[in-house]
Design a protein around this nucleic acid. Sequence first.
DNA 1: GCGGGGCGGCCGCGC
DNA 2: GCCGCCCCGC
Length: 870
Amino acid sequence: MIRMTEPSKITSVPDHQPAAGGIAARARASVGPKYLSGLNPEQRDAVETLDGPVLVLAGAGTGKTRVLTTRIAHILSQGRARPAEILSVTFTNKAAREMKHRLGQMLGHAVEGMPWLGTFHSIGGRILRTHAELAQLKSNFTVLDTDDQVRLLKQLLQADNIDDKRWPARMLAGLIDGWKNRGLTPSQVPSGEAAVFANGKGGKLYASYQERLKILNAADFGDLLLEDIRIFREHPDILRQYQQRFKFILVDEYQDTNVAQYLWLRLLSQAPTSPSFTSPRVRGEVASQSDAGEADSPQTELVETAPHPDALSASEARRDPASGAREQTPHVKNICCVGDDDQSIYGWRGAEVDNILRFDHDFPGAKVIRLERNYRSTGHILAAASHLIAHNEGRLGKTLRTEDHDGEKVTVTGSWDSEEEARGIGEEIEQIQRQGEKLNEIAILVRASYQMREFEDRFVTLGLPYRVIGGPRFYERAEIRDALAYLRVINSPADDLAFERIVNVPKRGLGDATVQMLHDHARKRRIPLFEAARAVVETDELKPKARGSLRDVVAQFDRWRAQREVTAHTDLAQIVLDESGYTEMWQKDRSADAAGRLENLKELVRSMEEFENLQGFLEHISLVMDRDGGAEEDAVSLMTLHSAKGLEFDNVFLPGWEEGLFPSQRTLDEQGRAGLEEERRLGHVGLTRARRRAKIYFATNRRIHGTWSTTIPSRFLDELPSANVEITESKGGSAWGGTGGYGASRFDDMEAFGSTYSTPGWQRAQANRNRSGGRSGGGQSGFEEQASSFSSSSGPDFGSFSSRRRGPMTIEGELVAKSTGTTSEFSLSDRVFHQKFGYGRVTKIDGNKLTIAFDKAGEKKVVDSFVQRA
DNA sequence: GCGGGGCGGCCGCGC
DNA sequence: GCCGCCCCGC
């Protein structure tokens, strides 16, 4: 546990550029510069404590980003460092952009001068490019994403005759990622762990994967940090150079750091004047002899072969190399980490909550500052969130408080099934909208992405604008990856993965057989696939058709490479996309998303303008391209709890609080108590996104992977403080038909719901309850019947639709009113196109409401403004 | 070599 | 329920 420690004394001001003495002096006074004036005492402390390690425990909504940016502004205005001497790392591009933006506002000008503000990976990659040759790479190396990684591993598995059904490449990719997250190179992976894959071949495969990466002149995301760490350890002179450069280090979301990131930070945060720290984490004594400046490789051998007979747990992997340094005097320089252990939700991808829990052990003399004053949520919401998270044991403990009024209580609403849940939420949203609130201030946060479908369907029917946050990121889309692959082959002929990806896209009659042949050829001669292709077209090994096709491809690339010298890179990209037939391929495609893909390609070409040349663009694309920002129009946001971190909304809807879904059964199975605590933190994150209204839902029946099952309310519901929570009835007509299984819950109390209901669904629920288990069987069919009556296309059913519910009359009335006033411009059996569902035919018209039989998506009700004539 | 249909598997998703 | 993969027929 971290205890509060005395602030470290301000030692010596680093001897660089002369500060404006006046400003510095003024800062000492209690008034201070203007940018400090709006801060509360704790925030101000976090900003002004510049020397020594500082951990800022910043609860949700306590002004974390503000502290970080103000701290940078403070460092700059105090003349303690120049912009290029501040290392400031975040996890996401979004967070980095946000900081740049706010800093720009604060300083009143753009922040070109903050070259080391970025994500761990972009900065790690930048360092690696500078010293690429020390990692057997060229500085123009390609950054592979997960997809490339898996394809490469698949090839390795095939080469080794390993059945990739039994031992999927994806699994191996996960293992390797995990090892890299823990800072382990192939030789450092504990043999017990390496053996779990493919009967002991895991470690060897990791090693040969690394070799292949070097040949392809490529690095994966993990390498961007791991290779840095290796270079730092093997070349103390290089490390020292960075230590001297970075006078201040700032880290955002410290609770999400993994072991590799921790090691990377530790190395950089050692004071440069203390050579014994240059390689402290190289296991102990061996390293300390190395600092005389004589390098390096001999002792790294020793270092890397540290024998660990058994599985090294993640925390051991971290603690062990760290321990040497911990014993020593803290010549750690000015590092400030900001985080919230209660918002650590990325354990599954290698984050070590332990990093933040042990901060003061890792950085002796650390000052810990807690930000507990919340500026976001009302009293009831904050109380509910705090109460929930208090059930976790492994936490540093913070008490969030607000001076805001209590506001509305958090509501908990049970529904009969997930469709009713979606209907109810839809209605509440329309009600909120009628009160004049913006849809932009409404979010639905789900645990699993499959929950989104029902909301989307519902919103489409209602004509309620929504946007899905998350989903595949921009550069992960197939069309973007294809386009990039073309550019990668132009830029780096050795990039076999890229070549293989597009050699037959669009279709050119170069299938598996041809590619296999090229592979054989390339391996024999130890040349890249592209060069193999060039050689093969000169022989008659291929059938004439394939041979001609391949010759064309090679010639095209030669031409493009020549053009590269004389053509702007954006023009070149356009030329490549057009001449390769790639654009045409999508133009001919009639599927619903083809238009969007063409739009994405345009956007890709546009985005290239920001970069000087093709090389610069490719270096950054996989590290800095975000999903497209999306339109600014007013719309409800739909996203997972994970992607909601860092966002806030006036109104937050939290559906699906059921055992198995939330907390997720799989997390509980795989990670036990730690998993449960992480799920609970996820709940805490969800609740604290809300400013004024937080509404929780659970359904008794839910369709998961296509089959209905009965569920019980989440244990988290019982952990909410009753004083701050109101149990309400579902607007959609509600029933709770489960018969326990999760012990005594106040949500087992039937009186809380349903007593006023007489809907068929409710009656069925009653019947169901009296049956043992209440699981599927008769209940299921009854409930399908109910469900189908809602989505049925027969008859003008909006009237009956609403009459069976309590609240919705007005809503339907409004829709009907709207529809009688306007005659639809569509006619029966018109061919139409819908952004989401693709092409279809109108089968029924009811005012502005159309029923459309979609070619792929089946029959749907849609408001006519959402479709266009095909 | 290509495209269609059948079958198994499926949380979260940063860089 | 949907997607991705594999096998098969053309």
